[in-house]
Design a protein around this nucleic acid. Structure first.
Lengths: 204, 204, 204, 204
DNA sequence: GATGAATGAGTCTTCATTCAT
DNA sequence: GATGAATGAAGACTCATTCAT
């Protein structure tokens, strides 16, 4: 077995275990068992328990960001990009429930985490939203008075809270598509310029 | 000292300590020291460490909900109510930073918490948003196709993520007022009916 | 309420509680509750938890010894005295089950107890047996080669183990009378002289 | 070191510590120190402190029972078997003072122990006595009216109380042999049939 | 590299005892 | 005398991490 394989086996096991119990209630021994490796083996690939959590975040967020950027590059219209972002985010959270739970819940758990570890991947991810907005403002699609820093946070927050709904509840009333459309529409219709509206850009 | 005083002293101390270290990294001994009581005294008022966290949430959220409802009752226009809600939420998170951090971060920490403990206060709080929307829809101010369950989650999520900004960063670029206005506007302008727009209801 | 009453209320409560849980698993708070007094009140009558156990033993054994001695004084024949002792011992253990359990089980629990606290009442009690034997030997009823120190211990042990049977089991196959007769007979028939047997003393 | 060795090291250490302090006054840390292992190591071999006590009883009583049964199998005469049993019991209690103390004192300590944990080994041990009696009755050596359930308890109780004498006192006036002979004789002479007596079976 | 037995520091919780009222 | 809230020392047990094999 290649080194990378074992590294990944541990990461995937840890995602499942962390999602199941939460970071603090998860045991290294449980992760080891889930990954079919010895307890000690984990320490050949990670410095400590906390390092596993960081790595999950770094690596998995890295993949997500790359994927999102790749898909958005295929779209030129900022309005459509925003809709696509919403749909991709919610779809991902639905598909990778366990990863979603770890990122959403565990990542915020300790202020230590968020303070000590300056969360570059997270900033990079939300900046995708900010950049769509700015690009749209430059094209005259979005109102100039919309503050990117506020917009990106509130848009991400809206999606994030919505996805927590899927993560935590077993039965859901709305499809990912429906939710993505609605959330996009609140923000799009709330931020486009009158000019854009007449040109029927960003219409639902 | 009255019993209620000691109960409250411990709660307030716990809020500070949990905000500082996170729930799992907080020690009962530290809370006791912060509250100027003996370790054992805490167990005269709470069943265990976890019970303190639940109590913080129940009691403090109870106060917040009561306060928000009281203020909103003074306003009849749903649009203004939504703006007020946003402002109150963000103001509160700014004023009671430590409580905000505990509610935001620690509350989500353990899926156990969110799954086992069916979070009634939380649902009650977000339902305030849903009710404003429904009331607005009945008055023909908001579009009928806006789904309350999605709206309440995304609106709350937007505010919540924004407030995390204040909780976690020490320097802020935007005032609470600015952020509240922007977020409200995205949602208001994104959800009002054409009729309402012409009547200049919900205008910024 | 007289002082003696409260002292006794606590003692009687402690007997019930110790019998129920064992000494180490009993809580001062539980004894206080059972005695309908405050926790602190117990310390007005006893030095500490251990002192309650000692006192139970001293006082209750004192009563038992006085009672047994009084009854035996009415009988002149050592054989009959031995039978009476056996019957009284087992009857007492049956009647005062809770006290019996405390004396039997808790008293032996800690070697500390048996070593530190030179158990005078216990010695006094078993010496009643030794004295019956010696008296019988002087009268030529019992064999001279029976060693009092061994006899008293084994006779007491036989009764004690038998009574544990009643203390610990809820259903019993034999009556106290039957058991007392049997045990007495083993020892009597095993220790009387040939001369006494011919004279039909100590016959069953 | 083999696993079995460490298990046994802990057991032997626990016997010494429990004998010294009693179960409730013994600390896991003290057992660990006595066994030259870390505190945590104990929990690799035992579920909890109480489990150690149970295991001591199960394992050590198992050895004793096997040994006693083996020796008694070499003897055919029930009278001699009873004498042998008494001698072996007292010898064992003398040789393995610490184990004896744990079994005798700690085992009875908590009614919980005796009630919850249906003491199979103990019943098995005393049943050896009952079986000797029954076998003797079948051979016409012992009186038919002797009740096995009473006999076994009183015989065991006599030996047990006698051995407590050795366990608890440092100086002893009688040899094990003397005590075993005396106790056996009380019961033998008190239970044999007239026929057996004439045949000089069971004579001292 | 891989293992998993061993380690021991760390912490929640209990509860006998005290003492201000 | 009586109370019972408060104390804080003490200890069973856990589990991340190490390291000899």
């Amino acid at each position: 077995m290649k080194v990378a394989d074992k590294h990944d086996k541990i990461i995937q096991a840890a995602i499942r275990v962390f999602a199941r119990n939460g970071f603090f209630n998860s045991r290294i021994a449980e992760i080891a068992k889930e990954a079919h490796v010895a307890d000690g083996t984990i320490y050949l690939y990670f410095n400590n328990k906390y390092d596993i959590l960081i790595t999950i975040f770094e690596e998995e967020m890295g993949k997500i960001i790359a994927n999102v950027k790749q898909e958005l590059a295929k779209i030129s219209d900022p309005c459509e990009q925003l809709k696509k972002f919403a749909l991709m985010h919610l779809s991902l959270m639905e598909e990778k429930r366990e990863l979603a739970e770890v990122i959403q819940v565990e990542l915020r758990q300790s202020s230590k985490f968020m303070k000590d570890y300056r969360n570059k991947k997270f900033v990079e991810y939300t900046n995708i939203i900010a950049n769509i907005l700015i690009s749209g403002q430059e094209q005259g699609l979005f109102r100039k008075d919309v503050v990117p820093e506020i917009f990106k946070r509130s848009f991400f927050g809206a999606l994030d809270e919505m996805s927590r709904f899927w993560v935590l509840s077993s039965n859901r009333k709305f499809s990912v598509k429906k939710a993505a459309e609605q959330i996009s529409s609140y923000f799009l219709e709330g931020t486009i310029t009158s000019a854009a509206k007449e040109k029927r850009s960003c219409s639902r």
